[in-house]
Design a protein around this nucleic acid. Structure first.
Lengths: 233, 233
DNA sequence: TAGTGGTCTAGACCACCGC
DNA sequence: CGGTGGTCTAGACCACTAG
């Protein structure tokens, strides 16, 4: 049962989508220009542009000036992951969030992070380990290095009421970042926290954020066994 | 007074971004309406709208009709994962891609998939197992159920030159999908393929795609030990 | 119900780039 | 060079929703 589209540019997008999916326009083929489509649909060129721009963002068509718009040959799957503050993620599951800071000290950045997280030589970082619980069940283990030069106020940040995770989101804006997703085996420490056997496969998210050229923080978040990160595409 | 810089929506976005990052506008605070900003920047309201729409897409501001635009309190981290065809992912790493179909048979859908992948009762699915190699090193293990009712032509699809992965991308359009990312321990079969110990932590991506209400395919892709999925935010 | 964002139009100029 | 998409404008009407 089709729902009537509320506005024009989404309707046009759906019609273009239909022509692509039903091979009216073959993969790799050039499609009519914006002006032609605008005339066909009886709307302004801006409206067609909006629809085509949306399709280009999802990778379904490739647009180039002068060359025109082509249907992508191998349209990539694009998934947008929204990674909220840990507290909100826990509460979204209907659980109560609680966190405990188990370690908080100034220490030099470990060598294996120097390449990805180039703080000035000799500079120290704030290292923190935080346990996050959902309804008193272990949920996530967070290891974080924060560049004191970039966020000096962090030395006096309260970490009992609000987690460092949330404090940084609110107080340390970033411009770019790198994320990595992978799997590790639980070592003794993780096994103890998650109450699982050593060697259990765990899902890990690593994130490095920057404010311009200034590295802000490097965080590794290890989720409880069985965790699945989900998204809709 | 002549302004050298032409008004551009990206410039306006950067200025709005600056005001948010420098706390000119506090988190949670309402910011001026589009009309006011347009007057301030000396541009059309449409241009301000474009900039604000972009900020809203990244989650940095929350927009509501009548209520206005507010700075987000806990701006979520959003990461866009681009998941290309496996062959292209391997080749992007400078390696040669090769795949082997080790199993291809019609079988009923296993019970544990019925909830997430509701093919009609009694209907069969095409089950395939494919090994993907990068320069002859094992790269990925793919287990796939494909709904024969949705993609009947798949029964005669060639699977030697082009992998089922790529064939489906090119021939079976989808409208929506669900993805999940998690970690598992290698069982005996995976350990043999990846030449790693049983129990090694492996990164897994699962994807279910739909064309409207019609389920297309359910695929589980298990990556080689040490694999990291990366993205820039 | 009034105010705000969402969208559309008709026209214009510009940037890019294949030819 | 000329064609195409990218952007901007000034104005208009509409959709949603807080108060």
């Amino acid at each position: 049962m089709r729902v009537k589209e509320p506005n024009s540019w989404t309707q046009i997008r759906e019609e273009l989508l239909r022509r692509i999916n039903e091979r009216v326009w073959q993969p790799g083929e050039i499609i009519p220009g914006e002006a032609d489509l605008a005339e066909e649909f009886g709307c302004a060129r801006t409206t067609v542009n909006r629809a085509l721009r949306d399709l280009a963002e999802t990778g379904l068509v490739i647009r180039k000036r002068k060359a025109g718009t082509r249907v992508a040959i191998n349209p990539p799957h694009k998934a947008t992951l929204t990674i909220p503050v840990i507290r909100e993620e826990v509460e979204a599951r209907g659980a109560a969030h609680r966190h405990v800071v188990t370690l908080r000290e100034i220490r030099p950045l470990p060598p294996h992070l120097h390449a990805a997280f180039p703080v000035p030589p000799g500079a120290d970082a704030l290292y923190t380990e935080t346990l996050h619980y959902a309804d008193d069940r272990p949920f996530l283990f967070e290891e974080r290095y924060t560049n004191l030069e970039a966020v000096p106020e962090i030395a006096i940040a309260p970490m009992d009421k609000i987690s460092l995770n949330e404090w940084l989101v609110q107080n340390a804006p970033y411009t770019t970042g790198d994320m990595a997703f992978f799997a590790i085996s639980a070592d003794a420490g993780l096994a103890r926290f998650f109450e699982c056997p050593v060697g259990t496969a765990l899902y890990v998210v690593e994130r490095i954020t920057w404010n311009g050229d200034l590295p802000i923080t490097h965080v590794r978040m290890t989720y409880a066994p069985g965790y699945r990160m989900r998204t809709r595409i």
